[in-house]
Nucleic acid binder design. Structure first.
Lengths: 202, 202
DNA sequence: CTCGATCTACCTACTAGTTGGTAGGTGACG
DNA sequence: CGTCACCTACCAACTAGTAGGTAGATCGAG
């Protein structure tokens, strides 16, 4: 199997290209909205070659979502180190997605989209999507707990409930932006949401 | 398989059966998540017969979403006549969906799901989905306007923004409930959301 | 240094099954 | 009679996935 060091023989980025293509298809139309043929065309290889990197579609999407979660974990960890203030943390998180939607680089969260069609997902993928929600909800819960302790966030219910509500609003705002075809909708929705959570200071 | 005849003189309800089957498939897995063969099996007719009622898949889903919107319009109008109080209106709306999710009868809003995969939808369907969002947002905006005038709703931003935020939270909460596989999640999310909007009366 | 074994990344060609959709026929009924 | 609702029997295109082959890089042994 693989005891080799990937340090020198790195240039095979085809697997990453496949994952990137798959992600762009998934955020456009979900798990059933793309085929190996679609990916083959944009990556520039033959359909069968995809199976060399990802034996089945389940493997491909499972890898994709797992990596998506890993990126979220590292991203949130880094964000928290740079920006320790709970209100600023929420603002930065919301601002990140506002930016992603406005420049169309990531018009919606992969896991939010996949969760909406979760009953139809292969179980291997479903479990990864669920893990993403649990991680994000846990992270937000800790932010709200800290904000409540410090008095820097105004919360009316348990931190867990506030975190789930905040996450739901973010995901719903992505969907609304998509429904209206208006990238500014996301920011319009998050503004009052953040305003209610952050005591007026200025 | 049996040729049981609809001896009751009712008009052909096959079209409605097809629409009902399509809806249950769509809420499970989206536009690309079902086929004419799937519908034929649960309705108990042959695949080709569906084309007699709905010439194409686009016709079928377009009819479905249009009727979904019509039902929403009549439902909201009736609701507003019975329950004129803005806070109670929001509570009833949220409670309706909480009930639908808990008894699994409508585990998610058809249009919220379709909106998430909107770029992949046929334009005829996309326009109906957009119309649903516009109607619901408009209705909620009027509720928030009235609540703000009366002082029965505590809003921090423009009624339109509050309405969009509320709608987004409802849709996001549906997705979270689905992601966690926990029907009580929806209610947990809506509780603090409503609490913030409705001034304490006790 | 060279020979061959092995591995990687890709290919052509194919399979079995599914997709939405069509053509044309049949029996019931007013 | 014609219309309606449904049928059988198709179709071309597409689905994920498989079989087997090839060019080139790598590597260890003689």
């Amino acid at each position: 199997m693989s005891m080799d060091k990937p340090s020198n023989t790195a240039p095979s980025n085809t697997a990453d290209d496949i994952l990137a293509a798959a992600r762009s298809f998934i955020v456009a139309s979900g798990y059933n909205g793309f085929s190996y043929a679609d990916i083959a065309e944009v990556v520039g290889i033959r359909k069968a070659s995809i199976h060399h990197h990802f034996p089945s579609k389940v493997d491909l999407v499972q890898t994709l979502v797992r990596r998506y979660l890993e990126d979220a974990v590292t991203g949130m960890t880094e964000l928290e180190r740079n920006v320790p203030d709970p209100p600023e943390l929420l603002r930065t998180y919301a601002g990140f997605w506002a930016q992603c939607i406005e420049d169309a680089s990531r018009p919606i969260c992969v896991c939010a989209l996949l969760a909406s069609e979760l009953p139809a997902l292969p179980p291997e993928v479903a479990v990864e999507v669920r893990a993403y929600f649990q991680f994000l909800s846990g992270w937000l819960t800790r932010v709200f707990e800290r904000g409540a302790e410090q008095g820097t966030l105004t919360i009316a219910a348990a931190p867990r409930a506030e975190a789930e509500a905040f996450m739901a609003t973010v995901h719903g705002a992505m969907i609304s932006a998509r429904a209206y075809g208006d990238v500014l909708t996301f920011g319009m929705i998050l503004a009052p949401t953040l305003q209610k959570l952050i005591p007026a200071t200025d």
